[in-house]
Design a protein around this nucleic acid. Structure first.
Length: 464
RNA sequence: GGUCCCAUCGUCUAACGGUUAGGACAGAUGGUUUUCAAUCAUCUAAUCGGGGUUCGAUUCCCCGUGGGACCGCCA
């Protein structure tokens, strides 16, 4: 078998959305599974809408989730000369023809067809040279001579056999009147030039396959395998749009979704391997195949992304988690003070316990990070005179202590429970409020130890 | 409207003619817990409808119904 080569070919006309990232992931995984190549091709032939900023954003996004492409990215616009060459060759060989119909003319036909409720395809007026009326001031487009009769079949690796009548495929444009190639032509020429063996893309491209296949056949080029994967829908069942914030990668990065968690989620969206839910990177490469890809579209589910992220947070080494967290804070929250780093790192084991994302960890750790606590007024009201006595007693006790560890604190608090004839809640709650500003939070011993003796005293001294 | 595709718990999905239709997320209940969580245990919940084929259909075929994609001198 020839070398497997796949590609991901986005156009740099906007940020990559989550569906695009999944397509890239499937391509990448498939090539890795087959020990093949994976290329990135930037389809920037729409000069008006393509922006460099999007190009680098796309590369950034892929890098973030851990997909790296082989070789340098392939820039489609650099190959335009070659594309034109092929268009002219098709023209010369009689597979294509010049069309002088004006855009207005076409628009009129289209409007009429719509009014009559009949399907529109270009009427092939210029296909027959007898009808050719060459007007001096009109630059022609070049159209491909599509098959008129018979049926075409594509054997799709995901969809199975797709059978379509050739009469529904129009004579599509391969070269615009300004002489630039269109997508249908460029994609085929590039895929051929790049020796792409498997084209894995969203099933919105399914019909294009029938156009593109005819170009391959005319050029007598080897036709690659096709796999059209179902699209991802938004939670309300509609097509994922760029305006939908849940489709945007930056939304997930902003709340602190880990790249490996999103990768795992995307992998399982539309693909499965028995009952397995969690896949390491190595496992996803090992198990990924096209036969595991389903045929029906799936909905994006943020709750599930969060839950997978939680799994990754819980199972990550604390050192690595802290590294991620530190970086996250620096970019999206506030930079962690150098003298707090150790405190937070050593507290990671409990700060992560209630977190589904890095933003949650930040919220949990905020009482350490923030210098001036804002005590929730409602919570503050819970500190009655008796509680104040307890806090004072506690503060006295720790002042004289030499050892500041859990054993000491347990004894300390148990003594106070006995002395004030209360329970753990009676001591724990007021302390928690004074130390964190809220009655909700981590275990009281964790809080005290994470702040350290000095900081605890400082905070308790503020009691009035 | 035309062409093509799809259809299992609310969601992601497993079962590729024979299972009490399985798992995960979400949800519910209980245990544990100073709080919120976490955790443990238990539970609720699905084969779109109608016809065939077959000893037997979630699975194969047909017809409905519902959803989606495409129908650009965009990609």
């Amino acid at each position: 078998m020839d070398l497997v080569a796949t590609r991901f070919a986005p156009s740099p006309t906007g940020p990559l959305h989550i569906g695009g990232i999944r397509t890239a992931l499937f391509n990448w995984l498939f090539s890795k599974n087959n020990k093949g190549k994976f290329y990135l091709r930037i389809e920037d032939t729409d000069k008006d809408r393509s922006k460099d900023i999007y190009k680098s954003q796309i590369i950034q996004s892929l890098k973030w989730i851990g997909i790296q492409h082989d070789d340098k990215e392939y820039i489609q616009s650099e190959k335009i000369v070659k594309h034109k060459e092929i268009a002219n060759e098709l023209l010369k060989k009689g597979f294509a023809y010049k069309c002088y119909c004006t855009e207005n003319e076409i628009a009129e036909q289209k409007a009429k067809a719509k009014k009559m409720g009949t399907p529109f395809i270009y009427n092939r007026k210029c296909r027959d040279s007898k009808n050719l009326k060459i007007t001096e001031n009109i630059n022609p487009v070049i159209r491909f001579k599509s098959k008129i009769s018979g049926n075409a079949i594509v054997k799709d690796l995901v969809q199975g056999e797709i059978n379509i009548s050739n009469s529904t495929i129009e004579d599509f444009i391969i070269l615009r009147k300004d002489g630039t190639p269109t997508y249908q032509l460029s994609a085929v020429v590039d895929d051929h030039l790049m020796n792409i063996s498997h084209i894995i893309r969203g099933d919105d491209h399914k019909i294009n396959t029938f156009k593109q296949k005819q170009i391959y056949e005319a050029m007598k080029w080897k036709i690659p395998e096709f796999a059209h994967i179902p699209l991802i829908h938004s939670s309300d069942g509609k097509k994922l749009s760029k305006r939908d914030s849940t489709s945007n990668l930056s939304e997930y990065i902003k709340i602190g979704i880990l790249p490996e968690a999103l990768r795992n989620y995307l992998l399982r969206l539309g693909w499965s391997h028995k009952d397995k839910e969690i896949f390491s990177l190595e496992e996803s490469i090992k198990y990924f195949n096209l036969s595991g890809v389903g045929k029906s579209p799936s909905k994006l589910d943020k709750v599930r992304i969060l839950s997978i992220n939680e799994h990754y947070i819980k199972n990550m080494k604390e050192k690595d988690l802290y590294k991620n967290f530190k970086e996250y804070c620096q970019i999206h929250k506030k930079k962690i003070d150098g003298n707090l780093e150790n405190k937070i790192m050593n507290s990671m084991y409990f700060l992560k316990n209630k977190a589904k994302c890095l933003e949650d960890i930040y919220k949990n750790a905020e009482y350490i990070i923030i210098k001036e606590l804002n005590i929730n007024p409602g919570d503050h009201a819970l500190i009655d005179d008796n509680s104040k006595k307890i806090i004072k007693d506690f503060n006295e006790k720790i002042k004289e202590s030499k050892k500041f560890d859990k054993g000491f604190l347990e004894k300390c608090i148990n003594d106070l429970i006995e002395k004030h004839k209360t329970n753990l809640k009676g001591v724990g709650q007021p302390l928690r409020i004074m130390l964190t500003g809220s009655k909700f939070g981590p275990g009281i011993y964790d809080i005290i130890l994470s702040l350290g003796k000095e900081e605890v005293e400082k905070r308790l001294n503020k009691l009035s």
